[in-house]
Amino acid sequence: TTTITTTNEEDARRIATEWKNKGYTVHVEKRGTTFRIEVR
């Protein structure tokens, strides 16, 4: 599992989409101002 964190919502969406397009399972969680993107 790879975890990526960013405070930028646009980055979070872009990163999540990129990983999904590669065939990975992506889970995005917002904690306060931080977005945690888990890639499996």
Rank of each mutant, 00 (worst) to 15 (best):
T1H: 11
T1Y: 13
T1K: 10
T2D: 05
T2L: 15
T2P: 06
T2M: 15
T2V: 14
T2C: 15
T2H: 14
T3M: 11
I4N: 02
I4E: 03
I4P: 01
I4T: 03
T5S: 07
T5F: 15
T5C: 14
T5P: 02
T5Q: 07
T6M: 05
T6L: 06
T6A: 11
T6K: 03
T6R: 03
T7S: 10
T7D: 15
T7W: 09
T7A: 09
N8V: 07
N8E: 06
N8M: 05
N8Q: 05
N8I: 06
E9N: 04
E9S: 08
E9G: 07
E9V: 08
E9P: 09
E9C: 12
E9R: 08
E10G: 07
E10L: 09
E10F: 08
E10C: 10
E10H: 09
E10R: 09
E10I: 09
D11N: 07
D11A: 09
D11I: 08
A12R: 01
A12F: 04
A12P: 00
A12E: 00
A12Q: 02
A12L: 03
A12I: 03
R13Q: 11
R13H: 12
R13V: 12
R14G: 04
R14Y: 05
R14W: 05
R14K: 09
R14I: 07
R14D: 05
I15G: 00
A16I: 11
A16S: 07
A16K: 03
A16C: 11
T17S: 12
T17A: 13
T17E: 14
T17H: 10
T17Y: 09
T17F: 10
T17I: 12
T17W: 12
T17Q: 14
T17K: 11
E18L: 11
E18G: 05
E18A: 09
E18D: 08
W19H: 04
W19S: 02
W19R: 01
W19A: 04
K20M: 14
K20P: 01
K20S: 11
K20Y: 10
N21V: 07
N21E: 12
N21A: 11
N21R: 10
N21Y: 06
K22Q: 08
K22A: 09
K22E: 05
K22H: 06
G23Y: 02
G23I: 01
Y24H: 05
Y24C: 05
Y24Q: 01
Y24N: 02
Y24F: 11
T25E: 13
T25D: 14
T25L: 12
T25S: 11
T25R: 09
T25N: 10
V26W: 00
V26K: 00
V26P: 02
V26Y: 01
V26C: 03
H27N: 09
H27I: 13
H27P: 00
H27K: 11
H27S: 12
V28I: 12
V28F: 05
V28M: 07
V28D: 00
E29K: 08
E29L: 08
E29W: 11
E29G: 05
E29V: 12
E29F: 12
K30T: 06
K30F: 08
K30L: 10
K30H: 08
K30D: 05
R31W: 13
R31P: 02
R31N: 13
R31E: 13
R31A: 10
G32L: 04
G32I: 03
G32C: 05
G32K: 04
G32W: 03
G32E: 06
T33Q: 12
T33P: 15
T33D: 15
T34W: 11
T34F: 12
T34E: 15
T34Y: 13
F35E: 01
F35W: 15
F35H: 05
F35G: 01
F35C: 03
F35S: 03
R36Q: 13
R36E: 14
R36D: 08
I37Y: 00
I37Q: 00
I37S: 00
I37E: 01
E38H: 13
E38K: 08
E38G: 03
E38V: 15
E38R: 08
V39P: 01
V39G: 01
V39K: 02
V39F: 04
V39S: 01
V39H: 01
R40W: 14
R40P: 04
R40Y: 14
R40G: 09
R40D: 08
